[in-house]
Write a protein that binds this DNA or RNA. Structure first.
Lengths: 351, 351
DNA sequence: AGATTAAATACAATCGATTGTATAATTTTT
DNA sequence: AAAAATTATACAATCGATTGTATTTAATCT
């Protein structure tokens, strides 16, 4: 095993070629196991490569092949549970297929998102997976990607204005419908909704699912029962507080995420309300918090890992199809799953 | 704005050079704002570049400059809260300084870790940030990185066998000492410890902190009170169960992470024990779970985001120092912070 | 104006691997 | 054994940007 002195230059195929008195092209082909090289030479090359501590320079290889074997990921925040789970799924699929992932966070800022996309283009990523920021209403920077023939897949949050594109999303409408309907079945008469930023399609859909469930059960939709916020925990707390001050006979809450529900539950337990007896709760996302809070929070499971994995597989499929027959953009909807826990088990009223 | 037809070749500096009848080297220098190019030409180049939709090919640039502006990160699991927080910190620092991050997960497997490192070397990352897997006892693959003169910084989990290296770690011993001492102060007489895999330095240190706190308070250390596991939630549940079946007068638990503590608390609430009155709890990490569980769990805050940010800054410093005076390896210890919550507030006994 | 210095640009090699084409070596066929 | 067909290897261009050196052009000085 060769000892490399600090800062010594890395071995290249030329050094291997020199050492064996053959041509660099033969070395390259040998290393790539090309049928154009004899078994004998391949063995010699491999042996010498090991001896010299050779490691392919993928920068060179990538340049020549005009392919980086890299996928760019943009998420609002890496540390948010749902996104870190999705990323885990993406990484898993990417690793299996020999792709690297580079990850950047938009921090919900459009201008950061644009910068990131530019950087990805400059780095010649083979494809992009993105969950857009709150601020992203104008998607020209993403359309531009498609113009450049760089495959793109949205996951979870997508651009409503782009119809011709790949996306993999949750059945938000259906999940919200189920959740609300479940509360109604448990006997709730006045159900509030914590809505997320209505710039995002997915929160609109959750609101619509809520509305439609009410309507189908002949309950009137009351805008005063809807609180829109960023759905962070403290907003759940505040939303609940201001709702309760205005309307005191709320007996159910469907929250568009778990964090806000948790915040609200904390407020209610502080003011002595019982869950689910006084107010029943259903959240969304199946955040680990939901299982731990007391009482455990009913929620809608989103399968983040699965979504990431599928999104990545779809992207790679698209990458591999480049240059072949025209690509058919695909929309995959993952149907979520209502998990019933104690927070929504209202005792049956005897009437 | 030029419309690119699907699959059209990307513009290069040569096209810009041709269009303006100047040399490509001048274009390159103009784009990099070199003082060797006149203001006039710079403007013309920039204008033409925009017109042709030019985007630097960093693959080419990186090859030439033998620098990828990329940092490789290896973590056991991206979706674990502590790691996703750390990654967020790393990404933040990297973005600020113009670096990309590529992320891979070892899934606690040594052979995956080795593959990842090889891949990072082939991709010529400028530096590596790693939190090693459980299985990683032999660190030759990481020593190899240093031989290749690729800067390396460990964070959180490091190799005990490597003394000459950069690392940024938590004051695990001190944190554990504080946590245990706190339980003792609250009147606990028989404190159990949920220990993590003892292959990892950090869990050894937490165990030692626990031991030393007992010793300094003249309490005997009893190995039967220590349960070693992977510290996943269900292991906390099981550990507590098997402990209680053997020893029934335990009145405090210091768990080396929060998840295991939460599992144990769930078990105790099931069998009707009261927390903190019967058994007080302190966890480690300040996982979001700890704030939400009832009663809220006292824990030791680890500042994951901070750790990631500092680790990345240290790495970049090391990268920039390459080739200059010999680098002094650094060890940074972030002192953790005990957060007292209800789970450890044992009512004072009147004696 | 002519010489000297400075500014701006052009030339050409280079980073390390890949790949189409040409040539040499070997094997098969007749 | 000569011709044809295979197989193995060598040659040389290429990917797109960077950078040291050389050359041309413009500005300054005496």
């Amino acid at each position: 095993m060769s000892q490399l002195i600090n800062g010594m230059k890395k071995t290249t195929i030329y050094e291997i070629a020199n050492a064996l008195a053959i041509d660099s092209s033969t070395v390259s082909r040998a290393l790539n196991d090309s049928p154009r090289v004899s078994k004998n030479t391949k063995e010699k090359v491999l042996k010498k490569a090991k001896e010299l501590g050779y490691s392919t320079n993928l920068l060179a290889s990538n340049l020549r092949q005009n392919k980086s074997n890299t996928i760019g990921i943009v998420v609002p925040r890496i540390s948010r549970f749902f996104f870190s789970t999705t990323i885990a799924g993406i990484e898993e699929a990417a690793f299996t297929q020999g792709y690297n992932v580079i990850i950047s966070q938009s921090l919900e800022q459009l201008d950061r998102e644009k910068k990131i996309i530019n950087n990805f283009v400059a780095n010649r990523v083979d494809g992009v997976l993105i969950s857009i920021s709150w601020e992203t209403e104008n998607c020209t920077h993403l359309k531009h990607l498609q113009d450049l023939n760089i495959p793109l897949v949205f996951f979870d949050r997508h651009c409503a204005s782009m119809t011709n594109t790949n996306k993999i999303i949750t059945g938000d409408y259906e999940g919200a419908y189920q959740a609300t309907n479940h509360l109604i079945e448990k006997g709730c008469k006045k159900i509030a909704h914590f809505a997320g930023p209505q710039t995002l399609e997915l929160y609109k859909n959750r609101l619509n699912g809520y509305k439609m469930a009410l309507e189908n059960n002949k309950m009137k939709f009351d805008p005063a029962l809807v609180q829109e916020s960023s759905l962070m925990k403290n907003y759940g707390y505040e939303s609940m507080k201001s709702l309760m001050e205005k309307i005191d006979d709320i007996d159910g809450v469907f929250s568009a995420n778990d964090a806000a529900a948790v915040g609200a539950m904390k407020y209610l337990s502080r003011i002595g309300k019982r869950i689910p007896n006084d107010i029943a709760f259903v959240g969304f996302s199946n955040d680990p918090l939901s299982e731990v809070i007391d009482p455990p929070l009913s929620t809608v499971d989103q399968f983040g890992f699965e979504m990431g994995k599928k999104a990545c597989e779809l992207l790679i499929e698209n990458i591999n199809a480049k240059g072949k027959n025209p690509w058919q953009y695909r929309t995959v909807v993952l149907q979520p799953n209502l998990i019933e826990r104690k927070s929504s088990q209202k005792p049956v009223k005897i009437t």
